[in-house]
Simulated assay, not measured.
Amino acid sequence: MPTSMPDDYYRLLHDLQAVDFVLVELTLYLDTHPTDEEAVKQFNHYSSERKKLKKQIERSYGPLQQYGNSYSATDKWNWSDGPWPWQV
């Protein structure tokens, strides 16, 4: 059952997905061009951007990933608070 979230949530999630796409593409490129310094710089830049976006989303809306990949945003376990990214 889809859940409605604030517009900011969708914007942030869209930005995170775009950065993830760039990181996948850069990873594939770097697998075959490991000495391309500019591509490595781009990868590091987008990796840093991803961390910032993920932290911003989780601070406002709760964890995105499980199994130690996301901290609980409060002193209580909030993984079950949802909605989870695939529910919106």
Rank of each mutant, 00 (worst) to 15 (best):
M1T: 10
P2A: 09
P2L: 07
T3E: 13
S4T: 15
M5A: 06
M5H: 04
P6E: 11
P6L: 08
D8I: 05
Y9W: 13
R11W: 05
R11T: 12
L12C: 06
L12R: 12
H14S: 15
L16Q: 08
Q17H: 14
A18K: 15
V19L: 03
V19N: 03
D20E: 15
F21I: 05
F21N: 11
F21V: 06
L23P: 09
V24N: 09
T27P: 00
L28C: 05
Y29M: 05
H33P: 02
H33T: 10
P34N: 09
T35S: 13
E38A: 13
E38W: 07
V40K: 15
V40D: 01
K41H: 08
K41M: 10
Q42P: 04
F43D: 02
F43R: 07
N44D: 15
Y46S: 01
S47E: 06
S48V: 00
S48D: 10
S48R: 08
S48I: 00
E49Y: 00
R50K: 14
R50S: 05
R50P: 07
R50H: 12
K52Y: 00
L53F: 01
L53T: 02
L53N: 02
L53C: 03
K54N: 01
K54Y: 00
K54L: 02
Q56W: 01
Q56D: 15
Q56T: 09
S60Y: 02
S60F: 00
S60Q: 14
Y61R: 02
G62H: 01
P63I: 03
L64W: 04
L64V: 04
Q65A: 06
Y67P: 00
Y71Q: 07
Y71I: 06
Y71K: 15
Y71M: 06
A73L: 07
T74Q: 04
D75N: 13
K76D: 07
K76I: 07
W77C: 10
W77F: 14
N78V: 09
W79C: 05
W79L: 11
D81L: 13
G82D: 02
P83A: 04
P85I: 04
W86R: 01
W86N: 05
W86Q: 09
W86I: 02
Q87W: 03
V88I: 14
V88S: 04
